[in-house]
Nucleic acid binder design. Sequence first.
DNA 1: ACCTGAACACCGTTCAAGT
DNA 2: ACCTGAACACCGTTCAAGT
Lengths: 186, 186
Amino acid sequence: MPTPSRTSVAEIVAASRSILEAEGLDGLTMQRVAQAVGVRSPSLYKRVSGRTELLRLIANDIADELAVTLDAAAAAGGRPRAAIAAMAAAYRAFALSHPEAYGLLFARLPEAARVDETHNLRASAALLRTVSELAGPDHALEAARTLVAWAHGFVSMELAGAFRLGGEVDRAFAYGVDRLGRSLEA
Amino acid sequence: MPTPSRTSVAEIVAASRSILEAEGLDGLTMQRVAQAVGVRSPSLYKRVSGRTELLRLIANDIADELAVTLDAAAAAGGRPRAAIAAMAAAYRAFALSHPEAYGLLFARLPEAARVDETHNLRASAALLRTVSELAGPDHALEAARTLVAWAHGFVSMELAGAFRLGGEVDRAFAYGVDRLGRSLEA
DNA sequence: ACCTGAACACCGTTCAAGT
DNA sequence: ACCTGAACACCGTTCAAGT
């Protein structure tokens, strides 16, 4: 006689995101996830193929959430320079308020644990659109890569505690946005 | 009767770096390291307090090697703009040729596994000096943070396979160096 | 059809016993 | 003083047995 499901992929992913943020990537064990959704760890393998696939599903979920906040910032930003600044601020705020989630997006993990192309595109669409207005279509890709490299590098170093020479980190961020915004303008 | 040492911290760190680059961070197990230096894993605990300290020693070693290549690039670079471009190229070349080592420098690891301040400073000294000439002493720190954030963000995304939209990655790097160099000039 | 205990092959780490 | 086997508390994952 078939026994009814006690959990679902959606519930597993949601529980995993809570555990990730609260206990870090190392704390995100299959046993811990199983406990959170009320089963034993072997049962999780009925829903996901393993921890690697689970990480990918979580990363996709995070990328979608980031996409929503970037889209909102782009829409509220107005002219290209202001929109870029708004998106940069939203990007940094997302990373600082969800450090473990942000870290997972760029973690050195097996290929199979990485964000799917679809979700990756969703998160970068608004930036490409805005940068294309700023830098012109000929340089849109290079300019977007310059901006996102800077933003990712900045927040990941900030999260890693790599800015240890004093000074105001907020000021360095504002300085970077200003210089980049001006220098990428067509 | 005292038995003679069969290994040393230096040998352990050197062996670990080889293993790290060849087999990745997950492959760098205490047993694997012990095998490489010819002892059993419990013996490693006579030299290092645990895997975390071992990772820190490796990271310090990597930071020193990076410092040497950046110093050389700064010295060969000539005027500030050219020196910055040479350092950026050297930085990227280092990361691409030692991807696992570079990844360890910025990995999300316990505080106790991170590069020591001394080695961190050694790796950033030449950049701060050169950027100070370029942007003037008042903006040296912000300008250096902008540059290093961009460079780190760029190569870490490149290593993570995050540039998936086609185009020439080399061209985006050259574009970024050029724009940043010009916009940071005082 | 789903869930589970038991088992397997790994980890890092500790420690008493050997030399 | 250093090295080791054995043990401990964990992992992720598999699978036969239960319902």
